[in-house]
Nucleic acid binder design. Structure first.
Length: 111
DNA sequence: AGGCTGACATCGC
DNA sequence: CGCGATGCCAGCC
């Protein structure tokens, strides 16, 4: 029984994000519980590089900016992927971010 | 073995 | 109202 590391929990939450939805680092950290900071979520995404099944493009910062776009294969891949899911990205920022915002602490709780 | 860093967010002054 | 400092885990030097 392997003990799941904190970033594996982050990956699990990120994978639960439905298409056309985005979330931010703080909400993920908050959902996982206290004792987690948004910085760790960012570090978890860095570790997620080995797993292409993790939709890291659906995770943006509090401003809705594609902060992690530079870490993708191409700087535009993140925006392209989001727009492919119906999310309008302009100036490296999610348009109507609030409308596409997906809070795990709320959405998962409803299920 | 110890210390810095990292795709952020929030509180304090 | 703007900038600085803190938080916290794991990986890397």
């Amino acid at each position: 029984m392997q003990k799941f590391s904190f970033f594996e929990n982050v990956w699990a939450v990120v994978r639960l994000i439905p298409e056309g939805k985005v979330t931010n680092y703080g909400s993920i950290a908050k959902y996982l519980g206290t004792g987690l900071s948004a910085r760790m979520v960012g570090w978890a995404m860095n570790a997620a590089h080995h797993d292409i099944s993790i939709p890291a493009h659906r995770v943006v910062n509090r401003n809705g900016l594609l902060s992690g776009k530079a870490h993708f294969a191409t700087p535009t891949l993140m925006a392209e992927r989001l727009q492919a899911e119906g999310i309008v990205v302009h100036n490296d920022a999610v348009v109507n971010y609030s409308a596409h915002f997906w809070d795990p602490s709320i959405e998962i709780s409803l299920q």
